[in-house]
């Protein structure tokens, strides 16, 4: 039943010692949708997932998952969810098939059904050829896929995936995206964390951006994207003097060519002679930007157009300069 609420959190708080990891998190995820929690390292994504998946009790606030309270009705929540953590949780010494059959049995399937489910999932995640090999012999991406398959054995109502595509190659990543969309179409709620803006964009019905234990922005991917430049033009100067000239021009020029709202301005890294300027990524605007920055064609040694990174989102959304350099999609 799409529309009804699968996850609802109000004012979740959690501290480890003096460290305030969650500082009042409010979230709502309807059934049949994909929700993505974006944030840099240490933002509190994993902690949020652990609280919602009943593995860690919150210090304050309330949360209901699949209609049950995560503290008072832990067992009921657990029967409705699955969790695939940030780090692979499979037994290296068991084969892929054995790992999945074990998860099936633990989710309450009969021996027969567990076997059948394992075979189907191995097929779906392109692991059938390695079904009878110990997981310890799998490549990183294969392990990750097995781990994800293990999370789907019990056909859960609410699926938590903590950075599911980290370490996957592009093909596996797309395959995972397809699985996630199928799950949502089948009526499940999918809650995933990611460091990749693109992933949230392609996949999620709604996105929340988290930083320092707070949700700093929430909305559809479109609405968030409209608040930052979608791309960035990185230019590498020929030498330090050229870098200074480019930087001076960038400061005045970006307004004209960049995305319209919440423009973060140029990003400066003098050590590497690199300057990042927001743009919409289209050929005409990139050409115009290059011409404007370097009319004589002497100061720019190389350039690259990059998809906006989380860094850019943070600069735009929070004005923070503390966001760490994230991995790029």
């Amino acid at each position: 039943m799409p529309g009804t609420t699968a996850i609802e959190a109000v004012g979740l708080r959690k501290s480890y010692g003096d460290l305030r990891v969650l500082d009042g998190i409010d979230l709502r995820v309807p059934r049949g949708t994909v929700f993505s929690l974006l944030g840099p390292n240490g933002a509190g994504k994993t902690t949020t997932v652990r609280v919602l998946a009943t593995l860690t009790p919150p210090d304050g606030g309330r949360a209901r998952v699949a209609g049950h309270d995560v503290v008072a009705e832990r067992a009921r929540v657990r029967r409705a969810i699955s969790l695939t953590g940030q780090y692979a949780a499979v037994d290296d010494l068991q084969t892929g098939a054995e790992n999945l059959r074990m998860m099936g049995r633990l989710s309450g399937l009969s021996r027969r059904d567990a076997r059948r489910r394992a075979t189907a999932l191995l097929e779906r995640f392109d692991l059938a050829h390695a079904a009878d090999r110990p997981a310890g012999t799998y490549s990183g991406g294969m392990r990750r896929r097995l781990d994800l398959a293990a999370g789907l054995v019990g056909e859960p109502e609410v699926v938590f995936l903590d950075e599911p595509t980290t370490g996957l190659d592009p093909r596996s990543r797309q395959e995972l995206w397809r699985v996630v969309r199928d799950l949502a179409e089948g009526g499940a709620a999918v809650f995933l964390t990611t460091q990749y803006l693109e992933e949230a964009d392609r996949l999620a019905d709604r996105v929340a951006v988290m930083d320092g234990g707070r949700v700093v922005a929430e909305g559809t991917a479109e609405s968030l994207k409209s608040r930052v430049a979608g791309h960035r033009l990185d230019v590498v100067a020929t030498d330090a003097a050229a870098y200074e000239r480019l930087a001076a021009k960038a400061g005045t020029l970006t307004r004209a060519h960049a995305a319209p709202t919440a423009d973060p301005g140029p990003r400066r890294s003098p050590e590497s002679l690199t300057l990042g300027v927001p743009t919409d990524g289209g050929a005409p605007s990139v050409r115009a930007l290059l011409d404007a920055l370097d009319p004589d064609g002497t100061d720019v040694a190389r350039f690259a157009v990059r998809t906006a990174t989380l860094d850019d989102v943070f600069l735009a959304l929070t004005g923070a300069t503390t966001a760490k350099e994230p991995a790029r999609a």
Binding site: T54, R79, I81, A150
Partner: peptide, 13 residues
Amino acid sequence: RAGIVDRFRSLDV
């Protein structure tokens, strides 16, 4: 040390 105990716990084991 591995994540497997979290997974078991999330299955209510």
